[in-house]
Amino acid sequence: MSKDGNWAGGKIGHGLCMAPLFVMAALAIGPLLFLAGGSLMGGNEIEACIRPVMNGEEGYAGWHFLPLYPTLRHLVRVLFDSPEFFQMFWNSMKITAGTLLGQLIFGMTSAWGLARYRFFGKKVVYMLYIVLMMMPFQVTMLSEYLVLDWLGLMDTLWAVILPGIFSTFSVFIMYRFFCGIPEAVLEAARCDGAGEWQIFWRIGIPLGASGIISALVLQFLECWNLIEQPLTFLKTKSLWPLSLYLPQIRLEEAGFALCASVITLLPALLVFLAGSDYLEQGIAAAAVKE
């Protein structure tokens, strides 16, 4: 659009506008630096920093972003000496993998059907999906509980995975991308004698790939951060995902907690970094008109 030089008020105006942008960015990234530094700090150093919070002493907690005496002690303890952390890491993995895999199977086909075919009841189903997508967990909580209880799935990982598979949000994202494939491509394939399933498999999936990945990235971040569902449907602590376990660690073990937080964060951060383009596309898909 306009060159950087075109700002009203020239260079000074430019600087004034830019400053808040970078302050906001610093606020957004700050917690990452805090966690990264803290995970390398020794127990004594952390305690010295946050003693006022722990014991209510006079003065205020302080922090240094670069540890004075870096150590890997907490990291080693989290990785090799805390079986419960490992257990919950796997629970999180199972929940996330199960949900994503299920969405690939059920969500993708649903989105394709809704996007590319005209059939009786399509409008109603689409409306239902949109409305369902908008309902917060508290609205569907009792419904989900009733079914899970009826199926005898309460207090198993399935109680979190199965409803997650049929979340209509990812159907909506994939639907948006599938709609963008030109009909002419599909018609051409039909003329060449391709069956509907073949068209979906050979044309729909490859051409809609960015939408599918977008949906998966968004859903991964959501699954990894799941709090309400496991809190409601899982009673046994050994089934809990990391998101419920971390807050249980007490302030006295701040070093351990920081390290565990970082390791919890890593998979999400990796997915985020690898898929940030797709993430942006997925988010933007909702705002752009069909």
């Binding site: 990234i29 951060n225 964060l265």
Partner: peptide, 23 residues
């Protein structure tokens, strides 16, 4: 860069910042 930076909190699980929020 800025867009990426603003999106970072989306990737940070709430559980990971609990301790920071408390402090």
């Amino acid at each position: 860069f800025l867009k990426g930076a603003y999106l970072v909190p989306l990737a940070i699980p709430a559980a990971s910042v609990v301790l920071l929020w408390q402090l």
